[in-house]
Write a protein that binds this DNA or RNA. Sequence first.
DNA 1: GCGAAGACTTGACTCAGATCAAGGCGCTTT
DNA 2: AAAGCGCCTTGATCTGAGTCAAGTCTTCGC
Lengths: 266, 266
Amino acid sequence: MPKVVSPALIQINHERPFVVLHQNLSSHVSCGECKIRHRAVCSRCDTDELTSLEAVKFYRSFPAGTPVVWSGETMDFVASVVTGIATLTQTMEDGRRQMVGLLLPSDFVGRPGRNQAAYDVTAATDLVMCCFRKKPFEALMLRTPHLAQRLLEMTLDELDAAREWMLLLGRKTAREKIASFLCILARREAALQPQKVAGPMHVDLPLTREEMADYLGLTIETVSRQISGLRRDGVIELVGKRGISIPDFDALQEIAGDDTDGDVLS
Amino acid sequence: MPKVVSPALIQINHERPFVVLHQNLSSHVSCGECKIRHRAVCSRCDTDELTSLEAVKFYRSFPAGTPVVWSGETMDFVASVVTGIATLTQTMEDGRRQMVGLLLPSDFVGRPGRNQAAYDVTAATDLVMCCFRKKPFEALMLRTPHLAQRLLEMTLDELDAAREWMLLLGRKTAREKIASFLCILARREAALQPQKVAGPMHVDLPLTREEMADYLGLTIETVSRQISGLRRDGVIELVGKRGISIPDFDALQEIAGDDTDGDVLS
DNA sequence: GCGAAGACTTGACTCAGATCAAGGCGCTTT
DNA sequence: AAAGCGCCTTGATCTGAGTCAAGTCTTCGC
């Protein structure tokens, strides 16, 4: 269930996706204090460059479940996810859907030099994005190698992630898919609180079963059954519907079938 | 459980890549006359920048079937494919394989800022690559925005292709997968000889059935059966083992299940 | 010319995951 | 309190693609 939504977010317009502009936020949050400052596209920028960015930036919030853009729609901004999670999905005419990206805080949305969105972008949780008007952002990219360099790095990382995902989609069993997904979430959780090394790990699923199914190339029933299966085998424990605790991470990783050849570091 | 490859096949990993250096070629082919000049990483470079690149470049040839690098190996160069086709594949411990990239002339291999290869790179056909020593190339990237810009653009294209492929791997049927693959090859073929618009198209399969299977997330038997099925239904005709002609491209595209909403241009 | 090996095809059978169907649980609404 | 709705689970059945097992056709070395 969506967490408490601030009153500003609740107003609804029936025609357009309900988008609320946060002019206030935009003037309040300076890039220097931004929580994603050191990981986002802007991470390499110096103070001058930030100032230029700040001139073309604005914030937008989307309640959980809301569309950000539809595939094919013109998109006059690019953006960084500040808080929350967004999904990229592709849909076939007959309705089959495949998620092709999961955007976490600091991840980048949109492609400089392209006017139409290539995928459906949806807020999986309540979402705040730091948007840059597209035209000026593109101009800035040309003048600011730091921006382009960082974007290249992030894009290469995404490409690696996409290729990892191709292995999962093409060759892994349903059980391995679920285990892989949980491993990824757990690793991310662990990265945020690095002091904790041993003991059971805990993960909060940010996606519904249906979204997980779309991500993993499965049906919702199979996702449900495999999660039940892992629980029955003692590999995971359910904490409510959306919480999962992992007593033995190595066991889970083993099931995921990941090449673990000493990638302890990195 | 998924099929396991015999130890004998995995053993091959221990041999060294069979690499032939073409010092002669390297001095003969000047960037100005290079056939991939206008599409590769270097396409935006001016004459001065080309000269710097030329100083750190060398050619390598690989016969069909030869490894270029193994995943995890240190890789002290990055490269563009000049002629031929290379594949990027990931392999699980038990031998399951998934192709994650198909590199055609002008495509780029290797990641600046990374020392180990992330995937197995293999020459699918006889292959010539234009290699750049990694260290100096990286240095050049910092000084030469044109290089970084083009690489970003190419990486974004690859990311799009990877995401398209995720839809295929996660949601398409075997028949759709084969049809999609043929469509992609046919479109590429068509792009090379743009004058020809109507009439049956012809495609030469650059991959073995096994490589196609690895690409499509199928088994070799299923690939074979689906190709036979398409032939039986008159959608394609076989010309020898590796040649395919397509009397009605739209019909094939229909079977591929691609969203065709007027992407005639683009 | 002949055997062997590699690439491909085809058939019979199996099974993992999809599909169809029926609930359960925790809410919000009335 | 009841009814309705999302979201999730579980069971029964079906099926598309995998697996196993023969083949054929070509090429290549001797």
